[in-house]
Amino acid sequence: MTAPSSPQPPPSPSPAAVRRTAHTLSTGAIGWLYANRQRGAFAPDVTGELTDPDSVYKPLGESALAASLILREGIASPADRRAAEGLMEFAWAQLREGDLLYERQLRYMMMTDPLELYTHFARAGFRHDRLHALFNHLGGLTSRGAAEQLPNRRLAVANAARVAGLDRQADWAVLTDATWLGQTPEPWAIDWMTAYCMTHTVFHVTDWGGRPDALSPRIQDYLGRWLPVWIDIWQEIQEWDLVAELLIVDACLPEPRSAPEVWERLAAVQRPDGLVPRNGEPVTDDPDEAFREHQHTTVVAAVAGTLALSRHRGARALV
């Protein structure tokens, strides 16, 4: 049995067509995230222990990520910018202006999530001086450097330190080569979890599209050939969360190539209120449950739409 032949990279898409759909998608998504922000609030007595980090803490950071990238790109409409600023201010207040992150990092010195979450705020101009100093101190410890992590997680920490302006150096080539994507392996052997790891390798190396030339030409060529195939596969089975993540990968490349039809299919499943479902299953009528189940996909859609809009916009901002 012979291996599948390598497909040719698809032609460049129509920027105007992608821009229109990406704008609709990102505007609806950021509007829904802002309108539902209180559903992601901490309990009044929360401490840095966070016995269930995935319940509020992680989603709060995801919303802050989307908002920080909207503000970084500088192409949002005034209404979308206000929503992004409001989300950042809400999330920062929930974290007690960084004190909750400081408390958590002091208590759990080996955890990297305080830094990874803080960096979204640093990107948007927020700062907590004591936390910043603590990150620099911990970054010099042998224990932190020797921590056992998945390769794409090491990239996450390295990028967080870079964006936050910490006194750390990273060998990006070595870190990237240690990942699945860095080996440019058999593309037909990819599975669901590996696909998510692959997307995050791209996110962190390129700082969510902020450094589109950071990936090596070898990896750029590999993704240019196989990304459309992977998008087609997960689009067919309606795994919209992963489709949106793959579209972010496309927007992180020097030459995004996802066709307008791909964007239109994702936008077609977005609800009128802006929520983007994670898959083809029905969305619950319970608003709190809908937030828990679909907040992540709506965040990813906001990021995907924002980055695609930015990459295809030319020099013109939407008004």
Results as ranks from 00 to 15, higher is better:
Ser143Gly: 08
Glu103Ser: 15
Val303Glu: 15
Ser68Gly: 04
Ala308Leu: 12
Asp207Pro: 00
Gly31Ala: 14
Trp180Asp: 15
Gly224Asp: 11
Phe42Asp: 04
His120Arg: 06
Asp167Lys: 01
Ala161Gln: 02
Ala83Val: 07
Ala251Pro: 02
Thr21Tyr: 06
Ala315Arg: 13
His200Glu: 10
Gly48Cys: 02
Trp263Lys: 05
Ala122Leu: 02
Gln270Arg: 14
Ala244Pro: 01
Val243Gln: 03
Tyr108Arg: 15
His204Val: 04
Pro277Glu: 03
Thr194Ala: 14
Gly274Gln: 07
Ser26Lys: 14
Ala133Glu: 10
Gly139Tyr: 07
Gly31Lys: 09
Met198Ser: 07
Arg311Leu: 03
His312Ala: 05
Ala301Pro: 08
Leu69Ala: 07
Arg292Ile: 10
Thr142Asn: 01
Thr112Ile: 10
Asp250Ser: 06
His204Trp: 09
Phe203Tyr: 15
Ala156Phe: 10
Ala214Met: 02
Leu60Ile: 08
Leu175Arg: 01
Asn279Ser: 12
Ala93Arg: 12
Val18Asp: 06
Gly145Tyr: 02
Leu175Glu: 08
Leu95Val: 11
Val299Ile: 10
Ala29Pro: 14
His312Asn: 07
Trp263Met: 08
Val276Ser: 09
Asp99Arg: 14
Arg278Gly: 05
Ala147Glu: 11
Ala290Asp: 06
Trp188Leu: 08
Pro114Lys: 11
Leu275Phe: 13
Ile190Arg: 01
Ala308Trp: 12
Thr47Phe: 02
Val300Pro: 09
Leu141Cys: 04
Arg37Leu: 10
Leu181Met: 04
Asp213Trp: 00
Asp80Cys: 03
Lys58Thr: 15
Arg313Trp: 00
Pro15Leu: 13
Gln270Ser: 01
Ala308Phe: 10
Leu25Gly: 09
Ser216Met: 06
Glu103His: 08
Ala178Ile: 14
Arg313His: 10
Ser55Glu: 11
Gln94Met: 08
Ala161Tyr: 01
Pro53Leu: 05
Thr176His: 02
Thr24Val: 12
Gln105Ile: 14
Arg107Pro: 01
Leu71Pro: 09
Leu60Phe: 12
Thr51Gly: 05
Ser310Leu: 04
